[in-house]
Every structure is written in structure tokens, then in C-alpha cells.
Nucleic acid binder design. Structure first.
Lengths: 186, 186
DNA sequence: CAGCGAACAGACAGGTCTGTCTGGTGTCAA
DNA sequence: TTGACACCAGACAGACCTGTCTGTTCGCTG
């Protein structure tokens, strides 16, 4: 009884995978579980993504895409580059709060995939590079010659707040992070 | 042919577990592999640690103990509190370099064990709390009333450098981190 | 209305995981 | 010398993993 239109299975699998992989960890979740949660058969899952690795990469790409949309929203909502930087910190904090403080999905994936040559790690590098570029581009307006170094520093603070929030089980580190970011950006 | 003295098995297992768990990830390494690498039977492993979870906790406790020794060495080698803080950053960087940029074992374990109530997570919290306390204690000498906030900030920078080094596949982020730390501690 | 593609249902293979159990072997201490 | 103890060697159970396969059913398109 295929009560859904063809082509929907991929999206449903991706949504279920996103929830389960993020919440429980990638290695800890089997494809059977993902398929069941998505209300889809394993055959449909493999037909859409080829393998579990393929699904994992798709999961991270989708997260990156969503984050990119968030960045676009920030850019549209704030004209001042310094406000945009602040909004990045706020958004990061809001994401972590919404998702129950399990930290950055990309850093978690990095912990689970030790091989730097793994496609998963390439998606992570792409994501982090894009974030760094965005920060640097914003900082170029106010501090042209310090933009690169400042972006490096803000990335450290941002990542530090993300992982520390998990250990601390709460967003308190973001108060520190935002204060520090304000100090640095002047 | 028991060619080693009784009581050695536990230490050999712990050493093998430390190498394998850190390098490949905890979930990715089976107890058979650990026992084989240690040159010990599975029965001996279970006799010493009770379960894989028990072994994982022992592995992290051992890492914490080694780190504590490092802290003691730093304290003995430097009388100036500010030098001690700098030495913590250097030591962190050296550990990561030695271990092939797989990051902080405690943060990696946090990624693999989502449940905050898990004994593994308690060891992680203990470790991070101890480090924060040490930094705060040192900072109290030079900046009594800012010690707490400064320790918070340095922790963010330190953790940020640790995870960013993994993504970047090199210790470059520690240059940024140490520069930032020097700026903050004045 | 005919046919094709996509999903369904569910069994199946082959491997790995944690954890246990039996029986043999070596060492040390009483 | 005897007995306790820690370990070795390796089989075993039961669960779970990824990935494949057969056959069926639905909806869309030509």
C-alpha cells in the first residue's frame, strides 16, 4: 500500500536519519532503525542512497544546506557586518538549545570518522571553511587588515562554546563566548 | 604458557585500549581487537574490567591520571602562574601533535556517548572541571576578581583549538589560541 | 489502458558485536 | 606438596550490523 507519492522516500529517510544520527550518534544507529523511523523499507533506503556511508554524507550535506539558509537569513536581516557576526553566535546558540545540547553535528561526525580522507570529513571541512569565509568577509568591512586573524579567533571561540556546552549540559558557555566575541570585534 | 606474571593483563589491556579507542573511536573497536592487540584473552579482559563499558571508563580515567601528572609537572617546572597557563596550552598542543590530531579523547568520547548520565560522561566532566579549576587557581594570582571569567574564556579557546586542529589536520589553530590567550591574560 | 518505475513486505546471507563457558597451564605461597 | 589464582586457548550463544534478493502493489505517464 504505497500511500505516498514516489520520490518521497528519500526525503523521509533523510529526515529520520537527521534526527537519529544527531541524537544517538551515527555508528550507534543502524539502517533498519532509520528505515523503520522513516516508515520506509530498507530497499527504498538503499535505492536512494546506495549505502549507509552515502546516507551519512547526504545527512551532513543537508545539515550544511540548512545552515547556509540560516546564514542567508542573517545576511538579509542585518545590514551591519558586526551585527551579522553577533547573529551567527546567537544562531549557533539557538540551534544547540533547540537540539538538546548534543553539540555541532559536524564535529560529532568528525569524532566518529577518524580518517581525514573519508568523504564525511570533506563535508565537514567544506562546512567549516564556509563559516570561516563568511566571518572573514564580514570582518573585512570594519577591520580590513585584521579580518583573517579575527576570523580565526572567532572560530576558536565559537567551536569552543559548542563543545563546552555539551560537557556543561547547557548554553552558559555562549554567554562567555558572546562577551569574548564582542571584546575581540571591538 | 603464561609467560607473564599474574596481574599484568589489566595494564596491557589498558595500554592497547588507549591506543585503539583513541585512534579508531570507541564504538569502532571491539573487545576481541583490544584483547588481541594486548596479547591477552577476552576472558582476562572481562576478568579485569567486567564489561566493555568498564574498560572505557578505565581508559578515560587513565588518560585523566596521565593528564594530571602533566599538570603536576607544569606546576613544578614553572613558578609564575602566567607561565603555567601558557604551559598548559603548549602541553595540549604537544599531546595533540603526538597523537596525530585526533583531538581531545574526552571530547571524542562525549560525541560517542550521548547520554549525559553515562559514567563515561561523568569522567569527562571531572576532567574538564579539574582543568578549569587549575586555570582559575593560577589566574587568581594576577587577576583575582577576573579569574573565574578568564578561566571560562581560556577554556573556550583551548577546546576550540583542540577541535579546530582536528578539522584543519594540523596544529595551526594553536598559534591563534596562544596569541589569543596571551592577549586575554595581559 | 498499458506499462514502467518506485516503493512495499520480508526473508536471507555473511559478518561482527558483547559476553560466557569449559578445560588446560603456569606461578606463587602456605 | 598442595591449593588458590590468574591467565591461556578457543568454542559458543544471541543479538545486531550492512547489504541483497524475490515477489507484489501502487501511481503516474504515454
Amino acid at each position: 500500500m504505497g500511500r505516498t507519492r514516489p520520490g518521497d522516500a528519500g526525503a523521509k529517510v533523510l529526515k529520520a536519519a537527521s534526527t537519529l544520527f544527531y541524537r544517538d550518534g551515527i555508528h550507534a544507529v543502524g539502517v533498519d532503525t532509520v528505515a523503520a523511523e522513516a516508515g520506509v523499507t530498507k530497499a527504498a533506503l538503499y535505492g536512494n542512497f546506495g549505502s549507509k556511508s552515502g546516507l551519512v554524507v547526504a545527512y551532513l550535506r543537508e545539515r550544511d544546506r540548512q545552515w547556509q539558509e540560516e546564514i542567508d537569513r542573517i545576511t538579509a536581516a542585518h545590514a551591519d557586518p558586526r551585527e551579522r557576526v553577533a547573529a551567527v553566535f546567537d544562531t549557533y546558540e539557538a540551534w544547540l538549545s533547540r537540539d538538546g545540547y548534543r553539540g555541532c553535528a559536524f564535529l560529532n561526525a568528525t569524532s566518529e570518522f577518524p580518517d581525514p580522507a573519508d568523504p564525511v570529513r570533506e563535508v565537514v571541512r567544506h562546512h567549516k571553511t564556509a563559516l570561516h569565509s563568511y566571518l572573514r568577509a564580514q570582518l573585512r568591512h570594519s577591520e580590513p587588515e585584521r579580518a583573517e586573524a579575527l576570523a580565526d579567533e572567532l572560530m576558536l571561540v565559537l567551536e569552543g562554546a559548542a563543545v563546552t556546552s555539551v560537557v556543561a549540559q547547557g548554553p552558559q558557555p555562549f554567554h562567555t563566548a558572546k562577551r569574548l566575541a564582542r571584546t575581540l570585534t571591538g
